[in-house]
C-alpha cells in the first residue's frame, strides 16, 4: 500500500530488500492506514461471504429465538449476539447488514465522485462564466437540507436500497466538485498544462489525461471519507424507515428496532451500532492514512 519512490542506483542492503522488512517498516510508519485498510477489508469479506460467515439466513425466524414470555433471547451459544423480537439471529443480520452498508456507501460515493469530478474539472479548467454557473449550482446543492431532500426523493421513488443509494449519490457531489475545482485551479498553473496546449491537445484531453491523475490523491482521500459518511446517511434513512425495508437487514433499520427494545434487549442496539462505528472508523482511518502517504512531503526516498 505504501508509495515508495524508485530510487536510482541506490545501494540497498539485503535486509532492506526483503519484502517482510519493507512491509514491517511501512506498517510502523503508517499504522493507522493499515488498521483502516484491515477494517475495510474485513467489511468487504463480510459482505461478499455473508452466507458463509453468518450462522443462519437473515430472515429465518427461530421458535427458540424468543424466551418463554416472548421476549428476544439474550446472547447464548446458538445466538451469539442474541436474537431480535421476532426470533431472528442478530449476528447473522449484522453480517448481512454489511452488504447494504458497503453497497450504498461505495456506490453512492462512486456516483458523487463521477458527477463531482466532471463538474469540478470543467469548472476549474474553463473558469469564467462556466465556472460561475457550475459553482452556483454546487452552492445550491450544498445548501439543501440534505436529509430532508433525501427523504423527499426516496419518498417519490419509493424506498429501496437502490433508490437510497441513488439519492445519496446524486445529492452528495457538492463537496467533491469544490475540492476537485480547487485542485484543478492549483494544478492548471503548472507549465506542463501549457505544454499540453502547445502540442495541440484538446481541452478534454488536458482535463482527463493531463490534469486528472495529478489531482487523484486528494480526491481519493475525500472519497474514502465520503464512503464513511454515506454509510451513516444510509443508516439514518433506514432508521427513519425510508431506506432498506424489512426483512432485509440494514444497520440503520436494526438500530431503529433496537431502540424500541433497548430496555430489555440492549444487544439489538449494540450489535449494529458497534458495527456501524467500526465500519465508519475504518473508512476514516483509511482516508487519513491515504492523506499521509499521498502527501508528497511524506514520501520517504
Amino acid at each position: 500500500m505504501s508509495i515508495s519512490t524508485p530510487a536510482t542506483n541506490q545501494t540497498v542492503t539485503a535486509q532492506e530488500r526483503s519484502f517482510v522488512f519493507k512491509v514491517f517498516k511501512s506498517i510502523r510508519q503508517f499504522p493507522m492506514l493499515y488498521l483502516g485498510a484491515l477494517i475495510v477489508l474485513a467489511l468487504i469479506v463480510c459482505a461478499v461471504f455473508a452466507p458463509e460467515i453468518a450462522h443462519y439466513p437473515y430472515q429465518k425466524q427461530f421458535m427458540d429465538g424468543l424466551t418463554q414470555d416472548g421476549q428476544p433471547h439474550p446472547p447464548n451459544a446458538q445466538f451469539i449476539w442474541g436474537a431480535d423480537e421476532v426470533g431472528r439471529d442478530v449476528y447473522s443480520r449484522v453480517i448481512y447488514g454489511s452488504r447494504v452498508s458497503l453497497t450504498v456507501g461505495v456506490f453512492s460515493t462512486a456516483i458523487s465522485l463521477l458527477i463531482g469530478t466532471v463538474l469540478g474539472l470543467i469548472s476549474g479548467y474553463f473558469g469564467g462564466f462556466i465556472d460561475m454557473v457550475i459553482m452556483r449550482l454546487t452552492d445550491t446543492v450544498l445548501a439543501f437540507p440534505f436529509l430532508i431532500f433525501c427523504m423527499a426523493l426516496v419518498a417519490i421513488l419509493s424506498p429501496s436500497e437502490k433508490n437510497v443509494l441513488f439519492a445519496i449519490g446524486v445529492l452528495g457531489w457538492g463537496t467533491m466538485a469544490r475540492v476537485v475545482r480547487g485542485q484543478v485551479l492549483a494544478v492548471k498553473e503548472f507549465e506542463y498544462v501549457q505544454a499540453a496546449r502547445a502540442i495541440g491537445a484538446s481541452s478534454w484531453r488536458i482535463m482527463f489525461v493531463a490534469l486528472l491523475p495529478n489531482i487523484f490523491g486528494p480526491v481519493m482521500v475525500l472519497a474514502a471519507l465520503n464512503v464513511g459518511s454515506n454509510i451513516i446517511l444510509e443508516s439514518g434513512l433506514s432508521y427513519l424507515g425510508i431506506g432498506v425495508q424489512q426483512p432485509v437487514p440494514s444497520w440503520g433499520n436494526m438500530i431503529a428496532e433496537g431502540l424500541q427494545t433497548y430496555q430489555f434487549a440492549p444487544w439489538m442496539l449494540w450489535a449494529p451500532g458497534i458495527a456501524l462505528v467500526i465500519a465508519v472508523l475504518g473508512f476514516n482511518l483509511l482516508a487519513d492514512g491515504l492523506r499521509d502517504i499521498l502527501d508528497p512531503r511524506n514520501v520517504t526516498r
Binding site: Y192, P213, N214
Partner: peptide, 8 residues
C-alpha cells in the same frame, strides 16, 4: 520541474 507532468 513544473513543465513535465509528474504522473507521466
Amino acid at each position: 520541474y513544473a513543465s513535465l507532468n509528474p504522473r507521466f
